[in-house]
Design a protein around this nucleic acid. Structure first.
Length: 190
DNA sequence: CATGGGATTGACT
DNA sequence: GTCAATCCCATGC
């Protein structure tokens, strides 16, 4: 069983920090979250900024569900919907430290280097086999699950920075990374 | 109904 | 460093 829906029903910045060190699993593949970004309807970089549309329906829905959308017509990006129903907010999962099913990930990604498997939001969905079909599925009990930090995993030291690839609200330091972890996507915060 | 812009990646110069 | 791939959908006429 994954983290309960109430884990996500609080300020999105809190959840973005709290998700660092948690695990994402799909089928035989899994990894530990080492990079996240927060998005909230109150700022223009968030898809929910424009209001409720067919695209953003999931974002405004119940917390604890997956918001998966297509980026640049190519990649599927995985988010965890946060805050109460009716508020558009989510945490983008940007990078994982691969822990389980590495060979399956290599086959899906078509690369060998472990650091190339999940070091980016589009890479990790490809490595785990997460697709648009997972949009609006439960992250607690659905096919894609987020669970607590593995017992053998040291409590991570988290650093913040500005979000990647956006053109508006660029000043907000709403990106969170595990300090020194090689699976954090470029550009890595200092 | 036509247009344009991405929360990216990988190949190439 | 530059740039194309490729698709969903918001926006505007």
């Amino acid at each position: 069983m994954g983290l309960p829906a109430r884990f996500y029903a609080r300020p999105v910045l809190e959840v973005a920090r709290a998700l660092i060190g948690c695990t994402v699993a799909h089928g035989e593949t899994a990894g530990v979250i080492v990079e996240t970004e927060a998005y909230h309807e109150s700022e223009p970089a968030c898809h929910a900024f424009v209001g409720l549309t067919p695209r953003t329906r999931t974002l405004f829905g119940r917390p604890g569900r997956a918001y998966v959308y297509r980026s640049y017509g190519v990649h599927a990006l995985l988010n965890a919907v946060c805050e109460r129903e009716g508020v558009g907010a989510a945490v983008l999962i940007r990078a994982l430290h691969p822990t389980t099913g590495l060979e399956r990930m290599r086959a899906r990604r078509g690369v060998e280097d472990e650091r190339a498997l999940c070091s980016g939001p589009g890479k990790l969905t490809q490595a785990l086999g997460v697709t648009l079909a997972h949009n609006d599925t439960s992250l607690s009990a659905g096919p894609v699950r987020i669970g607590r930090r593995p017992p053998d995993w040291r409590e991570p030291v988290t650093v913040d920075g500005t979000r990647v690839g956006i053109t508006r609200a660029v000043e907000l330091r709403w990106r969170f990374c595990v300090a020194g972890n090689p699976h954090v996507s470029p550009p890595r915060p200092r």
